[in-house]
């Protein structure tokens, strides 16, 4: 697996898109810091960008990489390698190189701005950790979609729909259902609703840590009320881990049964 991971990673490190992605974060970090002139405020703004953008990039890169490396995969399949190590290697190659772009792109401007001497360092680390989680989750989901769809256009379509659903539509439905059933006790429903969506979950996780949950939406308030900050953190992180593990298991399962 590690050999495949190595080749996929270096292949991606040579691709122009990794640099575009890296440069984008670099620019975003610098611009936010100079506009806000304050680390904590920049972290909050960044959160809103990361929550939406990281899943999108993870989804698109994942699907694109899978379809583009089809020939390479077929070459590997005829070699004495396990299927699970081929696909897990490629998946980790994509996810790790995307995470690297994110960490370095945002990390460099923040470090130069004096991150290590400020209180925002924990908030910022948590932001990066959630970003990495989201990359792992959405790349894995993208690989699942690509493995199940031979047709590229369909694969791309489903991937975008999945992103749109989890990042935008889900919240809308969630809020509407809360409004619709407002006469009933909704605490448990909203809690479950939040846990089931990794995007909402990440947002909640950061909000709890930033201790501004009361200001920002219903989801955060519910979580705060139910768990208190530390317990909420543990639950959120374990839920995010489940969100990584489930699609990865399906990659292994699906790849074993597929014909090439």
């Amino acid at each position: 697996m590690f050999k495949i991971l190595k080749y996929s990673f270096f292949d991606l490190m040579r691709s122009r898109w990794s640099y575009v992605y890296f440069a984008f974060y670099l620019l975003l970090g610098i611009v936010l810091l100079f506009l806000n002139n304050d680390l904590s405020k920049a972290v909050i703004t960044l959160m809103n960008v990361i929550i939406i953008l990281v899943p999108l990039i993870g989804t698109i890169f994942g699907v694109m990489y899978y379809y583009n490396s089809k020939e390479f995969t077929e070459l590997l399949l005829a070699q004495p390698l396990k299927r699970s190590s081929i696909f897990l290697g490629q998946y980790l190659g994509v996810a790790i190189s995307l995470s690297m772009s994110l960490i370095l792109g945002l990390g460099i401007p923040f470090v130069f701005y004096g991150l290590f001497m400020s209180n925002a360092i924990w908030d910022f680390s948590l932001l990066l950790i959630t970003g990495v989680f989201l990359t792992l989750i959405f790349t894995a989901l993208a690989f699942n979609i690509a493995l199940s769809n031979e047709n590229k256009i369909k694969g791309f379509g489903y991937a975008i729909l999945l992103w749109l659903f989890l990042a935008v539509i889900y919240d809308g439905l969630f809020l509407m259902s809360l409004l619709f059933f407002e006469d009933y006790p909704l605490d448990k429903l909203s809690l479950i609703g939040t846990v089931l969506n990794p995007v909402d979950l990440s947002r909640t996780l950061i909000l709890l840590k930033l201790d501004i949950s009361a200001l920002l939406g219903y989801t955060g308030a519910i979580f705060k009320q139910f768990f208190g900050t530390n317990f909420g953190l543990i639950v959120s992180i374990s839920m995010l881990s489940v969100w990584v593990v489930m699609p990865v298991l399906r990659i292994i399962f699906k790849s074993k049964k597929k014909d090439f």
Binding site: D11, R14, S15, S69, K70, E71, F72, E74, L75, A78, Q79, P80, L81
Partner: peptide, 16 residues
């Protein structure tokens, strides 16, 4: 598969 050498029908390699 260590005991097999395989020549695929269509030679498609990673182009970069």
């Amino acid at each position: 598969r260590k005991q097999i050498d395989y020549l695929p029908q269509i030679a498609n390699f990673p182009s970069n």
